[in-house]
């Protein structure tokens, strides 16, 4: 990471810790939502941005995670265990969903995952004995950890922020490891990766499974945040929204999802000053943004940065280029 990049990240981190003390519960709710959705977007960025597998099912994994926690907490399972269970369950389901990715790619994979998302929605809605059906699950409690009650908005925000930072750091570490480089190799040139002796099957499944489990962990926080979950929240709309976060932020950039989630959560709220037309304005802004920076906001930053340094390739970009030799 360049020195400037490090300064920006540290400034943002200080901001994320200090700002909440000046916010009312509404603002805290929004930035908690940002932290929660960022986790899911990081997961999708891993599957899509690094490994290059288009998934339109991330919303379903957020749903599976949310329902896991929503169902386990009332029967007395402690939050940390339910949290881990949500991640594990999504890891397994994500691994299975990865199998089609071994056969088909690109838009075909997108449509398989889209179909999967809707199937999950149907199960959540129809299997009332388990999920509560259309009634959803009401009143998921916010956890108390080692005597620390997160019931208040500020406390819960710090729980979400903490979880996000830990999961993001783990992802960062993983991407630096041989595994992470293998993911990128997979995206850039699967045939070459194969010829270099990479077990592409295993890495494809891994990319799906890890990305999905991050979706599940995000859901595990979503349930106590909103304190009401229903199948509709995890239908295709959520998956589209998460995809939007990744692409708008900048697919394949580590900090893309952070920025993308910020846009998707806050922009519609800001646009409410336009009253009835706020969703139209929001949609129009997204289209404009895509037209002017198709590689996402960080892609734009990268491009501008490179131009300033007159063609010299930025170290931030170099880290994600495939020339780093796969194991």
């Amino acid at each position: 990471m360049s020195r400037l990049g490090a300064v920006v990240v540290i400034a943002a981190a200080i901001f994320a810790v200090v700002l909440p003390f000046f916010l009312k519960p509404f603002g805290l709710y929004l930035i908690s939502m940002w932290a929660v959705l960022t986790v899911a977007a990081i997961g999708l960025n891993l599957t899509l941005g690094y490994a290059g597998q288009v998934s339109l099912a991330q919303g379903a994994f957020v749903g599976i995670g949310a329902y896991t926690v929503g169902l386990l907490l009332p029967i007395g399972v402690p939050f940390p265990i339910a949290f881990v269970a949500a991640g594990l369950l999504c890891f397994v389901v994500g691994w299975i969903l990865g199998y089609p990715a071994l056969r088909v790619q690109h838009h075909y994979l997108a449509f398989v995952t889209l179909a999967f998302n809707t199937l999950v929605f149907l199960v959540l809605r129809n299997e009332e004995w388990l999920t509560g059906g259309t009634y959803g699950i009401n009143g998921t409690p916010r956890p108390t950890l080692l005597g620390w009650s997160t019931n208040k908005p500020l406390d819960f925000y710090f729980l979400c922020l903490g979880a996000m930072v830990v999961l993001a750091a783990a992802t960062w570490w993983m991407l630096r490891s041989p595994w992470g480089r293998a993911f990128v190799a997979l995206r850039e040139n699967p045939i070459r990766a194969l010829s270099l002796g990479l077990d592409t099957r295993r890495y494809t499944l891994m990319a799906f499974a890890i990305g999905s489990s991050l979706g599940g962990l995000s859901g595990a926080l979503y349930a106590p945040l909103v304190q009401f979950i229903e199948p509709n929240s995890f239908a295709l709309g959520m998956s589209f929204n998460l995809l939007l976060m990744v692409i708008v932020g900048g697919g394949g950039y580590f900090f893309g999802p952070f920025l993308g989630a910020l846009v998707a959560v806050l922009l519609p709220e800001w646009m409410r000053v336009t009253q009835d037309y706020y969703l139209m304005v929001y949609a129009a802004l997204i289209m404009v943004m895509m037209a002017f920076c198709p590689s996402g906001l960080l892609g734009l930053v990268d491009r501008v940065g490179r131009r300033l340094r007159s063609g010299e390739q930025g170290p931030a970009a170099a880290a994600f280029e495939p020339q780093s030799t796969p194991p």
Binding site: V54, F240, L243, L244, I247, V248, G251, L279, M280, Y282, A283, A284, I286, M287, M290, A291, P294, S295
Partner: peptide, 12 residues
Amino acid sequence: LPLVISTIALSL
């Protein structure tokens, strides 16, 4: 992908 996002926004 950017075009996909754009058409999703367009539908909204």
